[in-house]
Design a protein around this nucleic acid. Structure first.
Lengths: 273, 273
DNA sequence: AACACAAATTCCATAAAATGGGACAAATTG
DNA sequence: CAATTTGTCCCATTTTATGGAATTTGTGTT
């Protein structure tokens, strides 16, 4: 009843290592606990094989098991691996260039963000040269409910997933503008989804206004936000909207950088085998 | 037996799969292109072995090579894997939020623990903002007999199971307060079971006092501990007991998160699609 | 262009690990 | 308490990994 499998089963891969990576991808997409049997149904792999794979992942700290011994969830080492990967992404160089150009274009500080651990993680940031500016470090974190990027990440989640995250996350008021009422936040998120961009109008830091968009991802959810952050002294909603085209152009450029690495151009590589 | 690796090779792992994951961690930390030879120097693995590993990662799209054929960088599939991992990590996100709020409430560092491999594993930790504090990393481990969470895990075990674990484990004395006598430890565990909470009164680190409870699990044993850790300079047993209600409330919140994240709980949430 | 040099790649016999059907155990259900 | 589901173990067979040595490829030098 619960599982009507669209038979995407058959973990593809020619070697054990590649099959393990494919398994990791399935696990990565889980936002709930999962069981051995559930994975068998989903992947079509034989039970002893899967059992061994999960055992290896568990004993390396990539997964952990609940006390009942049958429910698995992601371990801290796996999480750390993912964060390290994103923080040290080599394409950061290329993205950094886009960011620099955007800052040059709009004259305000900009940053690239990702969702991590239910919070917004600053992957990269370029400061404006204007003397008055907020200083925020790459690597630092900000709550989802009071940041422009965060609201965009929330807006693309399935309702159940979003609720699970927000239910236990206090809507802490950082300023008088912070949305602390769940219904108001939900309405804002609906607006954000419709518009495709989000504001943070002094909801986190007094005097700081942001506008953000996501770098579109053709394969589904995006984990890359792009935002302009400026003091209200120089910025308001209308001025921010005027920057939107430049922001979207930059987001598209970043999406292209990501897309460049797709194995679409495999035709070239097919000759040398 | 066959290969006595002289500590030069720092890629730990008992199986090829685990070695591959360790390699991925090294790669994850690279913010530049890397070469096969560079990896050989860094990991100590034989060149043909590493060559094969990188080849597999490349042909699965996890890595890609530059045109020169000798510089590797992270591929789109690896990036997508990391993003997917973090985007679907609502359990950790929600638990972290509970932890943050608890820290805010009691004003001291708190952590979430699990029993893993006969030791207490720190799953997550949030530091107090007070300047004087112990710095303990998530992912580190502590013996069961001298930690508050550990004694709780022991207290819910069947006597035979507990004895089997403790018999193999020396009751190392870390401080003058560490319980090194089996009978004294057994008596303490009995007290812990009756009370439903546990202290660690400078039994592991001098000057560190902890109080912990378990996140209740209706289906049986719990593998989630929640603890407050504070310097004795600011904390004593009475003050710790005053925090107990807040601690138990947070533990209940974490138990709820776990309950909602069970695969079967999807039926309830099916209404909002 | 011929050379030296370093890095990448291939070879291959041996050792190690994965595989998965089946047996078994443990927990869950009716 | 029997029936069923789910996790774990066993083990003969197949597949894959291993790494020293040899070979090829590419770079830099005089």
């Amino acid at each position: 009843m619960t599982t009507h499998r669209t038979d995407m089963s058959r973990l593809e891969g020619d070697t054990p290592a590649q099959r393990l990576l494919a398994l990791l991808e399935v696990i990565a997409g889980k936002d709930q606990f999962f069981t051995l049997q559930g994975m068998v149904d989903e992947t079509g792999l034989p039970k002893p094989t899967l059992h061994r794979m999960l055992q290896q992942l568990e004993s390396s700290g990539m997964l952990q098991r609940e006390a009942d011994g049958r429910h698995y969830s992601k371990g801290s080492r796996l999480r750390r691996l993912a964060e390290t990967l994103l923080l040290n992404d080599t394409i950061q160089g290329a993205r950094h260039a886009v960011l620099t150009q955007l800052v040059d274009e709009v004259g305000e500080s900009c940053n690239i963000t990702a969702l991590s651990g239910g919070e917004v993680l600053y992957l990269d940031r370029v400061e404006t040269s204007a003397p008055l500016r907020f200083y925020l470090h790459p690597g630092s974190r900000v709550p989802v409910h009071c940041s422009a990027s965060g609201k965009l990440f929330l807006a693309q989640m399935a309702p159940a997933q979003r609720r699970r995250l927000l239910d236990q996350m206090p809507l802490t008021a950082f300023t008088h503008n912070t949305l602390t009422d769940p219904e108001a936040l939900e309405a804002e998120i609906e607006t954000v989804r419709r518009q495709g961009y989000a504001f943070d109008d002094e909801e986190f830091l007094p005097g700081l206004l942001c506008i953000a968009v996501l770098a579109p991802n053709p394969d589904g959810a995006s984990n890359t936000g792009l935002a302009i952050q400026a003091p209200v002294m120089r910025m308001n909603r209308d001025k921010a909207l005027a920057c939107l085209p430049a922001l979207q152009k930059a987001a598209e450029a970043i999406a292209n950088i990501h897309r460049e690495a797709l194995p679409d151009a495999a035709e070239l590589a097919s000759a040398d085998r």
